[in-house]
Amino acid sequence: MKIKTDQEAKLGYWLILPTVLAIGGLILYPVIYNLWLSLHKVNMNPNLPNTFIGLQHFVEVLTDIDFWTSFKTSLIFTSTTVVGTTLLGLGVAVLLNRKFPGRSIVRGIILLPYVTPVISAAFGWKYLFNPVFGMFNYVVVDVLSLMPQHINWIESPRYAIFAVIIFNIWRNFPFAFLMILAELQSISGTLYEAAEVDGATGWQKFKHITLPELKFVIGALVILRTIWNFYKFSEVYLLSSSVEVLPVYIYEKAFATYNFGEAAAISVILFAFVLGFILYYVRKVLEW
């Protein structure tokens, strides 16, 4: 039998080899290469040699006011969308966690924003947010008079962040909804029955039974959404390129002004920040 297990192990290595090569070559190597690039003055032509300059890019970036503005935008964008997607997902999941006619169709409809290509959804929202004839301005300004005049929700840097946040919550809350609904359906009904016998109100049941059962899934959703939204590029850039979150800032540094070394340094800083957040969150919040 010894020979057989050796053969099995050998086959195991052969079968996993393509995966290891793909991830090593297209994820691990680029990450290390990126670190190397961040320490060099990178030539605009990728085929010409680069000059080592040490930590100079990092000093430049960290003393650049534009970087900190962008960092702040990223923090605002990520924190509001993480809270927004999770709360809306939780609310809708609790709402739909009952039997009613057409339930599976409703669930399918709610998933649509999450599966529609970003480019299509972004065009739809651009039309809604149009400063002149968009439905959003019409309702908010002309019908409800919440604002004194029409606002350019897509191009004004001050207001575009609201559009981007609404768009992101619209697109991503279905994911939170789906995960939380699955968890809700696994909570045993007898817990609620026992609470009802003891005379618990709806809110008490939610607070003392539902929320503790959801603690793990909500914790996981928050950390995943935080990581994803710190790195989020297309959903921001395709709706409004005036919202300079860090990924958009990196993109423009690298591919609009060809400052590859500095852009690489910013992405190293972004990664370090996200990594720090993960370590803190896993230890202090999830208590693993």
């Binding site: 991830i23 994820i27 680029p30 690039l37 990178v42 990728p46 994803w228 790195y231 590029f233 990664f271």
Partner: peptide, 23 residues
């Protein structure tokens, strides 16, 4: 190790991959 892919968003890879692809 496969799970570490989660840790790196596309925006962290696009600069080094662009250099590699060009080379």
């Amino acid at each position: 190790g496969v799970l570490i892919v989660y840790m790196f968003g596309g925006v962290l890879l696009v600069i080094p991959l662009f250099q590699m692809i060009s080379k």
